[in-house]
Amino acid sequence: MTTTTGPHPTRRLILQGAASVALLGLGNLPFGATPARAAANDKYPEAAFRQKSEADAIKALYGKTAEPSDKVKLDAPEIAENGGVVPISVATTLDKVTSISFFVAENPNALAASYKIPEGTIPSVANRLKMAKTTNVIAIVEADGKLYSATKEVKVTVGGCGG
């Protein structure tokens, strides 16, 4: 996982940066973009869902970067015949999990789904995602304020995002 921003940061990201140092006095963006802790509050993380790369999406959703962990078990098929329906699940043995998110690296927008895990809920989620092409699936587990990730490449024979 890289921590650098891609070579072409989006306009929104630039605006966020500008707003956060109050250089231009832009005030709040329409959807009140506060990247840090976005997953912890109740608001739909619109800004994170609009990011293209997974690094930008993780930053917009959580405001920090993740470290790979073997305590995050990502289960996805080696080969998905239909990119429109790829069963992907995550489980973890980490304590104090507060959220689990799924990213598909080369989808038009990397963030696919983000789940809040309140106390008393088991940190294990299964869902089905669309994948545009063969690429990495990244699962992020937020536990005790830190981010842990697992990555797996899924080969897609028929993409599920385009026409």
Partner: peptide, 14 residues
């Protein structure tokens, strides 16, 4: 009490 909340984008399957 919320026991599970999903925020979904368009990449979740039909």
């Amino acid at each position: 009490k919320d026991v599970f909340v999903a925020d979904w984008g368009p990449a979740v399957s039909k």
